[in-house]
Simulated assay, not measured.
Amino acid sequence: MRVPFIKMHGLGNDFVVLDARNDPLPAAMTAARAAALADRHTGIGCDQLIVLAPAGDAGADLAMRIYNQDGGEVEACGNATRAVGLLAGGNARIATAAGVLVTTGNAQGIAVDMGEPRLGWEQIPLAYAMDTLAMPVGWDGLEQPVAVNVGNPHAVFFVPDCNAVPLDVLGPQIEHDPLFPARVNVNIATVVDRQTIRLRVWERGAGLTRACGTGACATAVAAMRRGLVEREVTVHLPGGALLIGWGADNRITMTGPATESFRGTFAWEDYG
């Protein structure tokens, strides 16, 4: 059986979207099938596989499930939410494992209400209690990260030059450290000025990525909590820029582009 897919990206963070709202998939998505489809050599290739479904009774327009490149399911993905918002016409309420996310189309692309950040050690989660604003831990010169959960866990390190950090080496070490029972996304950030941050991200289950929407949100919140930037900031990632605001209502708004690349079909039985 051939199944249609849509290839999309947000700042180079790319997705394979399977729209099962009207036509259900032949069988339930599994971690093995998601990883096979995401493989860049033998599959379609993507950072995340997105499966859309009817919203059910979630008070939303549609629902999405998100699978990382390794097949593991995650709660949220900001760039994927913008892409799905684009497919839905710009304005949509999207049910995710992290809650209902609201998208709005505007001149800058798609804005997403990412909800409220979770800042308590048990909400990240961490293995034991500690100050999440200046964690008393370090890895090979990376020290005192800020921990923020924006639908998934992030550790944010501020350094003089984010490009000088061997993130391909340190990223997997930190991701799998026992301190993070659900693993963690690793963000290496440099504050340029009070309106600008440069950022690189090692994404759990996906590795180095050109852009990470929740990482940009977590990093902006971390910098704002430390008083390094204003409450609205532009975060520059290798794939492009995102505008992040943290309002007085404690909710995060992320704005940036989303793009459809192409459409195709694949044989379901080839990726079992």
Results as ranks from 00 to 15, higher is better:
L25C: 11
L25P: 10
L25K: 12
L25A: 08
P26V: 03
P26W: 12
A28Y: 01
A28L: 14
M29K: 12
M29A: 07
T30S: 15
T30F: 13
A31F: 00
R33F: 03
A34Y: 02
A34H: 08
A35Y: 07
A36F: 12
L37S: 09
L37F: 13
A38V: 00
D39C: 11
D39Y: 11
D39V: 00
D39E: 05
R40T: 00
H41D: 09
H41S: 13
T42D: 05
T42A: 13
G43A: 11
G43T: 09
G43D: 11
I44N: 14
G45C: 06
C46W: 01
C46S: 14
C46N: 09
D47Y: 01
Q48D: 04
Q48L: 12
Q48T: 01
I50T: 06
I50N: 10
I50L: 15
L52F: 01
A53G: 13
A53R: 15
P54C: 08
P54E: 10
G56V: 07
D57G: 13
A60W: 05
D61S: 06
D61V: 02
D61M: 02
D61L: 01
L62F: 04
A63Y: 02
M64R: 07
R65F: 03
I66K: 04
I66C: 05
I66R: 02
I66M: 11
N68G: 08
N68F: 02
N68C: 05
Q69Y: 03
Q69M: 07
Q69G: 01
D70N: 14
D70F: 04
G71A: 10
G72T: 11
G72V: 00
G72P: 00
G72F: 05
E73Y: 01
E73C: 01
E73P: 05
V74N: 11
V74Y: 06
E75A: 15
E75M: 10
A76W: 02
A76I: 03
A76H: 06
C77S: 15
C77D: 06
G78Y: 06
G78A: 09
G78E: 03
A80Q: 06
T81N: 07
T81Y: 04
T81F: 04
R82I: 00
R82P: 07
A83Y: 00
G85V: 04
L86Y: 06
L86E: 05
L86F: 10
L86K: 14
L87C: 05
A88Q: 10
A88P: 12
G89P: 11
G89Y: 08
A92D: 09
R93Q: 12
R93S: 09
R93G: 03
I94M: 03
I94H: 04
A98R: 08
A98H: 10
G99R: 12
G99S: 13
G99K: 11
V100N: 10
L101D: 03
V102L: 08
V102F: 07
T103W: 07
T103V: 10
T103I: 08
T104H: 15
T104P: 09
G105K: 15
N106A: 03
Q108T: 00
G109T: 00
I110R: 08
V112T: 09
V112F: 08
V112H: 09
G115P: 04
G115Q: 06
G115T: 02
G115S: 09
G115Y: 05
E116G: 01
E116V: 05
R118P: 00
L119D: 08
E122Q: 15
E122P: 06
E122R: 15
Q123E: 15
I124A: 13
P125W: 01
P125Q: 09
L126C: 12
